[in-house]
C-alpha cells in the first residue's frame, strides 16, 4: 500500500480567544495528486495549512507527511514540505537571489548548490532579471512568484500553495499554473487553496471543501462535478422572440433584447434547445456557462452545510 503524501487525522484547533477553527479534520492526499482545498473565508483552510507547516500549534490530532508525523518528527516532516503562504513573508530589503539561497541554507543546503537552485527556479519563474534587485521593488505578481521559487529551494515532495494567485493578473496566473503543473507532472504532490474555482476545476484531480472547521465534501473533482444536475447557460442571440419556446425540463428567460438565460437539467441535450430556438427564428451567436460549475457546487455545498448546522 502506498504511503499517502498527507494523512490528517482528527485535527482540531481552538485559538486562545475560544474560536474553534478546526473541529476534527481528517483527510488523505495521495502521492502525485493535485489536490484542491477549498472553503469560504474563515473556514479553517489557513489554520490547517499553518498546522501542517508548523506555524500553528494544533490543539489535538496529528498529521503525517509521507508517513512522518509533524508532531513526533517535526524536523523530518518539514524537510518534505514547501510552503507558499497567503501573505508576503520575505524580507523586502533582501534580494530575491539571497532570499532563495538563505531559505535553502535553513534546510542545510550548502551555498554552491543553493545558488544553482536559486538560479534555476528564478529563471523558470521569469524572475532572473530581478534576482539582484531589492525584493520591495518587485510587482505583486513577481513577489508571489518569488515565494514559489523560495518554496522550491528544498525541492519538496509536498508543495502547499495558500491562495498563491490572489490579486495576480491573468497572464502571470497562467504562467504560475504552468510552472506548478510542470512540477506536479514531475512527481511533486500539490495542495492548492484558491478562491478562483475555475483554476481548481482545471488543475486539481481531487478536492476537499472545508467550512466552519469541518470537511463538507472530499472526493474526486470528476465525481463532484457529476453531481451537478442543473446547469445555467447564457446565450447571445440575434434577437429575443416575442413568444419564448417551451421545452420540458428547460427554463428560458430573456435577460435583454439579445441575451437568453437557459436553466436546464444536465440530462437534457442541447440540440433540442437549439432546434427549438431555431424554429422560432432565433440565431445563437455564442454561449457560455453562467457560473463556473465548481462554483455552483461550492455555493450549494456550503449553504446546505450551514442550513443543516442551523
Amino acid at each position: 500500500m502506498t504511503t499517502p503524501a498527507l494523512h490528517v487525522n482528527d485535527l482540531r484547533k481552538t485559538y486562545g480567544n475560544g474560536v474553534e477553527a478546526l473541529k476534527g479534520i481528517s483527510l488523505t492526499v495521495q502521492p502525485g495528486d493535485f489536490f484542491a482545498l477549498l472553503g469560504p473565508n474563515g473556514a479553517g483552510k489557513s489554520t490547517l495549512i499553518g498546522i501542517l507547516s508548523s506555524l500553528v500549534n494544533a490543539s489535538s490530532g496529528d498529521a503525517e507527511v509521507f508517513g512522518v508525523s509533524i508532531h513526533r518528527n517535526r524536523s523530518e516532516a518539514m524537510r518534505l514540505i514547501g510552503l507558499v503562504p497567503q501573505e508576503i513573508n520575505f524580507n523586502q530589503f533582501e534580494k530575491p537571489f539571497d532570499i532563495c539561497v538563505n531559505q535553502a541554507g535553513f534546510y542545510g543546503i550548502g551555498r554552491a548548490e543553493a545558488s544553482e537552485r536559486a538560479e534555476k527556479y528564478l529563471k523558470e519563474l521569469r524572475l532572473w532579471d530581478k534576482a539582484h534587485h531589492q525584493a520591495r521593488m518587485l510587482s505583486g505578481g513577481m513577489k508571489r512568484r518569488l515565494m514559489i521559487a523560495r518554496a522550491m529551494m528544498n525541492e519538496p515532495k509536498l508543495l502547499i500553495l495558500d491562495e498563491p494567485t490572489a490579486g495576480v493578473d491573468i497572464e502571470i496566473r497562467r504562467s504560475m499554473w504552468q510552472f506548478v503543473s510542470g512540477i506536479n507532472e514531475a512527481g511533486t504532490t500539490v495542495i492548492l487553496t484558491t478562491h478562483y474555482l475555475e483554476e481548481a476545476e482545471q488543475l486539481c484531480r481531487n478536492i476537499a471543501i472545508i467550512d466552519q472547521g469541518r470537511i463538507v465534501q472530499n472526493t474526486s473533482m470528476k465525481s463532484l462535478l457529476a453531481t451537478l444536475d442543473v446547469e445555467t447557460f447564457v446565450l447571445d442571440v440575434s434577437g429575443v422572440p416575442a413568444d419564448m419556446p417551451s421545452l420540458p425540463g428547460v427554463v428560458l428567460r430573456a435577460l435583454d433584447d439579445h441575451t437568453i438565460e437557459a436553466e436546464m437539467s444536465r440530462s437534457h441535450d442541447l440540440n433540442s434547445l437549439f432546434a427549438a430556438l431555431s424554429a422560432h427564428g432565433v440565431t445563437v451567436t455564442s454561449m457560455r456557462n453562467k457560473a463556473n460549475r465548481l462554483e455552483e457546487l461550492f455555493v450549494r455545498l456550503v449553504e446546505h452545510g450551514r442550513e443543516n448546522a442551523a
Partner: peptide, 15 residues
Amino acid sequence: AKFGRFVEEMLVSPM
C-alpha cells in the same frame, strides 16, 4: 523578522 513575518522562513524549516 517577526513584524515582517519573515521569521516564518525559519519556523517552517527543519532547523
